[in-house]
Structure formats: structure tokens, C-alpha cells
């Protein structure tokens, strides 16, 4: 799929490239936002956390641009086949990235709140977890840029790692909260942060599935969720 020949009408290619560029920019911003939010958490830096919250509007604005462009292209160019799939995928991916941005923003808000509580030890797992989800987003977006279905499949397979991190953190936080009621507030925030990262992993997987669809015309089937905390007692 990477060897797309040019359209006879060249401005169509310009539009597609612009849409792809908007989605890539959103992806890059999302990666940065997650990284910055987690840094703010680890550095216990409320100002850095609030900067992440403020930056989220840029992702929202890019999503609005991508949506406008995609709708215009559908209306004016009547895209077909691989073009249609790519535009629809870009539209859906941009909505997912916007949601990922919201999760990053929520992590930053909680990071800011956590600066007012005593540090707790299980937080050290968060940077490792966030590295995995950031890589998943990066690779999903690379797969989008390269129209590479195989790379997209590889992203989907990595979601299990994120789920494992979350399962393990969930269990240690339960123990932690039972040990000392003073740990409940920071642990609850930390649990939400981990849940946000886990959801980001799911969304990155969705992006990869859309890339797979765009590249192949087939729906990707074959992922089973490994987050089993919903059944924990």
C-alpha cells in the first residue's frame, strides 16, 4: 500500500497529505502530553502538570481541523476505495487521539493533586507503563504514515503488556490501601492514572486496527483483552 501512485488531480493528493499531516501532528502531541504528564507526576511539579492541561486545547483544535478537512474531502472529491478508507480512518483516528489527549490531561490534573499528598511507592511503575503506551501510539501512527498493516498488527499485540502492568499495579495498590487508610487518597488517584494509561493502550490498539483496515480493506480480528481487574474481588 505504501506505493500509492499520484492522483490525476494533484490537489487531491495535497488534501490527503494535509490530512495525514494533521493526524501525525496530533499523534506527536499526544505522545508529548503523556510523557509530560508522567514527568510532572514523578517530579511532583504542579506547574508542569497545569501546562499539560493547557496544551490539550491544541489537540482539540487539530481534531477540529482534521474533521473539517475530511468532511470537505468526502463532499467535494467523492473518494473511493483506498482513498475512502484512508479518509474515514483518519477521521476516526483523529477522534481517538483527541480522547487520548483527554486522558493525558486527566493524568496531569491528578499529578497536580498528588503533589499535595505524601508520595507512595507504587508510583514507580507508572513511567514504565507510560513508555509502552507512548511507543504504541508512535508505532500506530508510523504504521498510518507508512500504510503498513504488519506494523499495525504488532501494535495490537503489545496491548497485553499494558494490561499486565495495570493488573499488577491494581493488586499492589489494593494491598497498599488495606495497610494504611492514609494511602487511600493517593492510591485512588494513582489507580485512575494507571487506568488512564491502560485506556490509552486500548485506544492506541484501536488506532492500529483502523490503520490495518485502511491499508487492507479488512477488519482486524484477533485481539483478546487481558485486563482482568474487572473480575478482581
Amino acid at each position: 500500500m505504501a506505493d500509492q501512485t499520484a492522483h490525476t488531480v494533484k490537489s487531491f493528493d495535497d488534501d490527503i497529505n494535509q490530512l495525514r499531516s494533521l493526524v501525525s501532528q496530533m499523534g506527536g502531541l499526544c505522545e508529548a502530553q503523556i510523557g509530560d504528564a508522567v514527568d510532572a507526576l514523578m517530579d511532583r511539579d504542579p506547574e508542569a502538570a497545569m501546562a499539560v492541561v493547557d496544551t490539550d486545547t491544541r489537540i482539540d483544535a487539530l481534531e477540529a481541523d482534521a474533521e473539517r478537512l475530511a468532511v470537505t474531502m468526502i463532499a467535494l472529491r467523492a473518494p473511493m476505495a483506498s482513498d475512502l478508507r484512508e479518509i474515514i480512518s483518519a477521521l476516526k483516528i483523529s477522534a481517538v487521539l483527541e480522547r487520548i489527549g483527554d486522558y493525558a490531561k486527566n493524568i496531569a490534573k491528578r499529578a497536580s493533586t498528588l503533589t499535595a499528598t505524601a508520595p507512595i511507592e507504587p508510583v514507580v511503575i507508572i513511567p514504565q507503563m507510560s513508555r509502552v503506551v507512548v511507543e504504541m501510539i508512535r508505532d500506530a501512527l508510523d504504521a498510518f504514515v507508512d500504510r503498513d498493516a504488519e506494523k499495525a498488527v504488532a501494535v495490537c499485540q503489545r496491548d497485553a503488556t499494558v494490561d499486565d502492568f495495570y493488573n499488577s499495579l491494581f493488586r499492589s495498590l489494593l494491598t497498599f490501601m488495606m495497610e494504611n487508610p492514609h494511602h487511600i487518597t493517593p492510591s485512588a488517584h494513582l489507580l485512575f492514572i494507571a487506568k488512564n494509561l491502560e485506556r490509552i493502550g486500548d485506544h492506541a490498539t484501536n488506532v492500529a486496527e483502523m490503520v490495518y483496515f485502511s491499508a487492507t480493506g479488512e477488519h482486524f480480528a484477533g485481539r483478546t483483552k487481558t485486563d482482568d481487574t474487572a473480575y478482581a474481588v
Binding site: H7, T8, F12, M80, A81, D83
Partner: peptide, 19 residues
């Protein structure tokens, strides 16, 4: 044919890449 054609020539034609 219009969402996921099999043949590259079909795809090129319906997406406006023909010729």
C-alpha cells in the same frame, strides 16, 4: 468494487489515479 477492489488497475481507476 468501490470500497475494496481486488485489482490494482480497478483501484487506480476508481480513485482517479488512472493513466
Amino acid at each position: 468494487i468501490f470500497t475494496n477492489p481486488t485489482e490494482p488497475r480497478t483501484k487506480d481507476y476508481i480513485t482517479g489515479r488512472y493513466g
